[in-house]
Nucleic acid binder design. Structure first.
Lengths: 174, 174
DNA sequence: GCTAGCATGTAAACGGTTACATGATTAG
DNA sequence: CTAATCATGTAACCGTTTACATGCTAGC
């Protein structure tokens, strides 16, 4: 997830770690701060894997500042991760959103549409959200005010997402 | 998160691990399966912490089947976790939802309302969702179809959630 | 001179995933 | 008898959080 964000942002332009952190944070609406202890090890991993390159900038700005950029392998890897997301990245809203944030980098509109289709299929599966005894619970039947709220919110989200997916897939395939 | 769900479900009735797993899964709408490798260690932790008790049921059902129940300390702990959620549990939608699922167990309506208020404050902070250069991005300005979608969906969710929070807090405080 | 922001890192602990392992009961 | 479901657990690995640590630069 973090790795995808790093690759995604670097696909657009070379950045240093600190700037990367700010962008990733901006993407999630400050819901969850990106910790240095997650970011820098992730960068190290990607460098070791040959997906990104580091070079120290001389003079400019604060102390040592390492500018990161994607290698050719990194570019290929990003596209592959966007093209073939794991099941959990389609299923989990948070992860799917991260995917969406960079999906424009996939050069083929048909491939973009295919990813949206996978999400669509998941949302249309009658296996989504809040079950009791194997049956989906209706908001009116929820046992208390709070679970009623959960259902209302989940339903509103699902409705809007389905609407957008329809529209977007339509546009991509026209 | 997992621990909260375990405590929450056991507050209602004693259960064994397998049943607990099914309920937790039902709550998330199968978005993310609960793995045994997470569940059983979590149970062990809670037992060690004195928050739940295990007793092996003789005869009934399959093989060995351990029925779990909350101790007095466990009941206190659950209420405390509901009453004073950590910042990230208010901020992160997924976690906040887990909180909501069990919030009815808080005996004091004013305390329930206070938790909802914290979420409300977070949502009203102009720091929520998708920033660029420190400014919130409007859907029309989003650079591509996919980010437009993210914004649309996020906005729909936020709107519905704010509406429900208003309503719910009103009811709780009347 | 000091504080805020820029900038990068490490180490321990924690929680979760994945894979492995076992065995009982029930329905076809 | 055999497959599905019930039922519980362990071990290796992985990524994240939290806390700690350092040092530069710009503006007050």
């Amino acid at each position: 997830m973090l790795e995808l964000s790093i690759l995604g942002f670097l696909y657009e332009a070379p950045l240093h770690g600190y700037e990367l952190k700010a962008r990733i944070q901006g993407l999630s609406g400050h819901i969850r701060p990106v910790s240095d202890g997650a970011l820098y090890p992730a960068i190290t991993r990607l460098v070791k894997a040959g997906l990104i390159e580091q070079r120290t900038e001389p003079g400019s700005g604060a102390a040592h500042r390492r500018t990161l950029s994607l290698t050719e392998a990194g570019r290929t890897e990003l596209l592959e991760r966007l093209r073939s997301p794991k099941e959990v990245e389609v299923t989990d809203g948070q992860r799917f959103f991260t995917l969406l944030a960079f999906l424009r980098h996939l050069p083929d509109r048909a491939e973009q549409a295919a990813v949206l289709r996978r999400r669509q299929t998941f949302l249309d599966t009658p296996a989504s959200f809040f079950y009791r005894d194997g049956e989906p619970v209706r908001a009116e039947d929820a046992p208390d005010l709070f679970r009623q709220g959960m259902l209302r919110i989940a339903r509103a989200t699902g409705t809007e997402e389905r609407r957008w997916l329809d529209e977007a897939i339509g546009r991509l395939e026209s």
